[in-house]
Computed example of a mutant assay.
Amino acid sequence: MSVSVRPLPPVLEEKARKELFEDPGRLASDLQHIKDWIAKQPHLRARTDDQWLLAFLRGCKFSLERTKEKLDLYYTLRTTAPEFFKTHYTDPFFEEMLSLGIFVILPKPPTPDAPIVSIVRLGKMDPNKYNMLDVFGVTSSLMKILLLDNDNAVVAGGQGIMDFEGASMSHFLQMTPSVMKKMVVMGQDASPFRMKGNHYLNTPPGFETIFNAVKGLLNEKNKNRLFVHNKNYDELYKHIPQESLPAEYGGKAGTIAEITDYWRGKVKEYSTWLDEDRQCGTEESKRPGKPRTAEDMFGVDGSFRQLEFD
């Protein structure tokens, strides 16, 4: 059996072997095992590209059972949380959100074997015009491309920066318990992308309420990867070197506008793939056993309007 995947640079190949238990001699049979399993699932419409499935195997440290569970959950969310995937790259709205620079992924890691860095700038979104779900639609497309295209992201994982400069209570009121639960399920349980740290900057009043609520939904490992720096950028630089950040953060990785142009090019490059991917998901009526519903997975929606913000 032959496989169609990119060879890793030596430094990442070693990292994959040591940390993810990747065995090149077993790769073809592992991929075939997952493809055979997908073919037997009557409810599942999943991609079977080698490079795509490899991202899930790596994200699950080559546990075949965990890979199956994660793939199933990943595609189930298309059905139970469709609002997170509604914005397609062909929508004029997509370009509008991209141009605002709300979600920025740095194309190159700080060092050859380091995690990829992403930045969310919530304050760039007008909460009276846009909703958090609009941002997730753009984020979802870029993350798919990242998993296909960037070996550092899949092997070394990611570091996230959440910059709240300019954010207000109106932004936070969009973070209902249901939205937060879905975000955590997507990021922690369904995605093969492994976050190595989340860093919070310029935190406003009211942040602690949201932070503690999200933290309460995370597993212990991810709770320990949260870092609140507020305005102490020097602490951030201990985790992510300053020179590897965009010019707007005092770095040398280009401007956010230049990085956004890079992603425009990637979206164009992967446009056919993204078109095909829209057909993927689950048909819950065909799921063996009990169909999954949003209510079962996420509970009842609510809001934070009843909570007190300090």
Rank of each mutant, 00 (worst) to 15 (best):
P177T: 03
M1V: 09
I116L: 08
R278K: 14
P205S: 14
F298G: 00
K252L: 07
R45K: 14
I145T: 05
V267S: 03
T255V: 08
L218F: 12
K40C: 06
H88G: 08
R225T: 06
E83N: 10
P112G: 11
F304Q: 01
Q159C: 13
L148Y: 13
L57M: 05
T79D: 06
L307I: 11
E220A: 15
K124G: 00
T282Y: 00
K144P: 00
L77S: 01
K35W: 08
N152T: 06
P42L: 03
C280D: 12
I259V: 10
A294G: 07
D149H: 14
K266G: 01
N224G: 14
F211L: 13
D277Q: 13
A213Q: 09
L54W: 04
E235S: 15
P107W: 07
G216M: 09
F62N: 04
P24S: 11
M186D: 02
M97P: 02
V104Q: 00
F93P: 01
T80E: 02
K252R: 13
L73M: 10
A46M: 05
H33L: 06
E96N: 07
T139H: 12
N150W: 01
P246I: 10
Q279G: 03
D163Y: 03
A294V: 00
L201Q: 11
G137T: 10
A156C: 08
A167K: 08
K223E: 11
M180H: 04
M297V: 01
R305Y: 05
P107Y: 11
H229T: 10
C280R: 15
L20F: 11
F193C: 03
M143A: 07
T67A: 09
D163E: 08
P92Q: 01
G250S: 13
G250M: 10
K61M: 01
A81I: 00
K196S: 09
I240M: 07
E295C: 05
P7N: 12
Q41E: 08
G25W: 03
K223S: 08
R45C: 02
M297F: 01
S178M: 12
M1E: 13
G251M: 08
K68G: 02
N212Y: 12
S118D: 07
S4L: 09
N219K: 15
A39S: 13
A46C: 15
K252Q: 13
K15N: 07
T90R: 12
R45A: 03
L217N: 10
R17C: 04
Q159H: 14
P246K: 05
I34V: 15
M125G: 01
D134I: 02
R17Q: 13
L73T: 11
